[in-house]
């Protein structure tokens, strides 16, 4: 379970996240939608313990991110916005470093790395430094480090940003493949992606939840039956 309770974050006098509460159960793939600056990334940064909330808290698999940060952080894999990685390391070195930190060792470490490298098709770039990789490959390396320890919870901030259509398809397939008994939270701008992989869509704007239902139900609320029309309808005011 992810339980988010009254999470708030202020930057200056503006609420980036305003008293947000929701929970996500195993088996759910939650699509986190909203215009730029809606508070999606800020919320993810607070759930993962990078940012300290001004109010409220989040619990991941029962561990409070503020009271027991290390225990909470063990349970999830996180792809931060922009998929940062150490540019001076090769892909293989980077994955080994993450595996060590995640407490994987020996044969288990090697087999997990092999499995993830095969899943995400990183074989050709294993010996390359991260700084020499294309945007698409960097994103895939970021995804690889997030799923390396086979976490129960996966939090992905724009996992398909910068990927070409084939790569997007691969990543969606990967997420669908893992969805069965995991908790997955994905933020994205691409609404067709939500319809393709998410069992639940949450639209937020100005730090508040505007809608929270299955993508199909939300889409059915408009005359056209399209999710992007619904998105525009309820968030258009938030942009001005």
């Amino acid at each position: 379970m992810i339980e988010v309770e009254h999470l708030s974050k202020r930057f200056g006098d503006r609420y980036a996240v305003d008293d947000l509460s929701f929970s996500v159960a195993p088996g759910e793939v939650l699509g986190f939608l909203g215009p730029n600056g809606a508070g999606k990334s800020t919320t993810m940064k607070m759930i993962t313990g990078f940012l300290t909330p001004d109010g409220g808290t989040a619990r991941i698999m029962g561990h409070d991110i503020q009271q027991a940060p290390v225990a909470a952080k063990r349970t999830f894999g996180y792809l931060p916005e922009g998929a940062p990685g150490y540019s001076d390391m090769t892909v293989a070195q980077f994955l080994r470093f993450i595996a060590d930190i995640r407490g994987l060792s020996g044969a288990q470490r090697e087999s997990r790395i092999d499995a993830v490298v095969a899943d995400i098709h990183l074989n050709d770039v294993l010996g390359q430094r991260l700084e020499t990789l294309s945007k698409g490959f960097r994103r895939r390396v970021g995804l690889a480090q997030a799923i390396l320890h086979d976490p129960q919870v996966l939090i992905l901030d724009e996992p398909t940003d910068g990927l070409d259509p084939n790569q997007k398809h691969e990543v969606r397939k990967l997420i669908q493949g893992m969805a069965k008994d995991k908790i997955i939270v994905v933020s994205t701008h691409i609404l067709e992606e939500v319809e393709a992989v998410c069992s639940r869509a949450m639209i937020i704007s100005r730090g508040k939840i505007l809608a929270d239902d299955t993508p199909a139900t939300l889409a059915a609320k408009t005359a056209s039956g399209r999710l992007d029309d619904y998105f525009r309808e309820i968030t258009a005011g938030g942009l001005s």
Binding site: K45, T48, F50, K73, P84, I101, Q145
Partner: peptide
Amino acid sequence: KAGTIELLLTLPIT
């Protein structure tokens, strides 16, 4: 600057 601080500090370390 590289944003890796977000990666590092969301790993299970203190």
